[in-house]
Amino acid sequence: MHLLVVDDSSTMRRIIINTLKKLGHNEIIEASNGREAIDRLAKDRVDLVITDWNMPEMSGIEFVRSVRTSRSREQLPILMVTTNAAHDDIVAAVEAGVNNYVVKPFTPETMREKIQAVTAGVEGGA
């Protein structure tokens, strides 16, 4: 499975990528904001997006809304990793098109469960 990790924090990208590698995922590309992520989606194969919410230039919510405007990416699994864990935050994320949600801080087990949940039925899913 090919994964795209989107986060403005190089630390969080590294933590997420380290976690994904522990879970057996090795096909990982990264982007530091929503605009860069859109470029990566246009150029690279991506089976699952893992994105932050709070980012400069283009927030995670804006990025997800942009992705969902493309018919070919309506079903692309998107997981949001963020500290915004209130009920209203989750509603806003789901309304934007996020499939599931990982609240920071998170364990590898939580990440594994969420990836399984959003990729169930997706060809090549973990």
Binding site: S9, S10, T11, I15, T82, T83, A86, P105
Partner: peptide
């Protein structure tokens, strides 16, 4: 790596506190 990492730690503490 240290400044960004410490910012993330503060971000997560503040985020949990905010929740």
């Amino acid at each position: 790596e240290m400044p960004d990492a410490m910012g993330e730690m503060a971000n997560m503490i503040a985020g949990l506190f905010r929740s």
